[in-house]
Design a protein around this nucleic acid. Sequence first.
DNA 1: CCAAATTAGTCAGAGACTCTGACCACTGTC
DNA 2: GACAGTGGTCAGAGTCTCTGACTAATTTGG
Lengths: 146, 146
Amino acid sequence: MAAESELNTGLLLFIPYRALENRIFAALAEAGFDDFTPAQARVLQRVGPDGTRLTELAEQAQVTKQTAGFLVDQLEKAGYVTREPDPTDRRARLIRLAERARAAQPVAAAVVAEVEREWEEHLGKRRMRQLREALTVLREITDPWA
Amino acid sequence: MAAESELNTGLLLFIPYRALENRIFAALAEAGFDDFTPAQARVLQRVGPDGTRLTELAEQAQVTKQTAGFLVDQLEKAGYVTREPDPTDRRARLIRLAERARAAQPVAAAVVAEVEREWEEHLGKRRMRQLREALTVLREITDPWA
DNA sequence: CCAAATTAGTCAGAGACTCTGACCACTGTC
DNA sequence: GACAGTGGTCAGAGTCTCTGACTAATTTGG
């Protein structure tokens, strides 16, 4: 609610985050991956290589499992994920990345690499390293599930 | 879509941002300011001390002006903002903070200060300063409207 | 072993958010 | 003073998210 020269750290964190997200989204759309929404992407991003349970996705994305289920439905219809029974627990099902998601990964990774390179160029190697180090340490007390 | 030890910088930025936002939201709710939503808060946060036009709020919050108008309607009904004619342009109206928003500000500010103190304690003064400096410089190339 | 508590997920319904498209009122320019 | 541009609203639809209630499978305690 203020706009003095010293922004609060939260907004300072958010600004580059959103810039990166926008870039990724635009690049994916340009590459033909324009059939999913930001909300779906936030869930998709958290599907692990060996599959992930719905409840776990919901926790990490900080939504209810109903919401996560709804989003996974869309992603499944669009061919980005599959649902398979979890061999270790017959109540559960594992969400796995499908072909279309694996095709999108390199595109997203390339943009992330490109943006990080731009940032490093602007900040300088030293400050970029300091930024990542500080954020990594900060994660210890701000990441509720890790 | 990956979970190696080295997270991409975007996620690293997002984790503490969300942690801070959650803290602010919880504190405001506990203080009785529980009658607004996150989406409304993101708009409210951007109302300047001398009032701000709807279009400007929309740009900064990265939503359409229709969406911003919808959110301002809610905030107005809940007593957080007022709409007044802009003396310099009869098409425009200035959104201004109302009493209830001014009452909430110190609560939010206190939480931000508290969280920043915790972060500084965990990171150390030096790394905290480096973090803020890097983010401030990064803003130069990631903040589209500033 | 079995009853109770817990956990994984779904279904139903409602509210909140966001968009596109169409539109009106005012401003600034030539 | 027409006209392109800007500030804002109205209408309608699609998306996201939640609460509450429920089923099925697992885990726990006696």
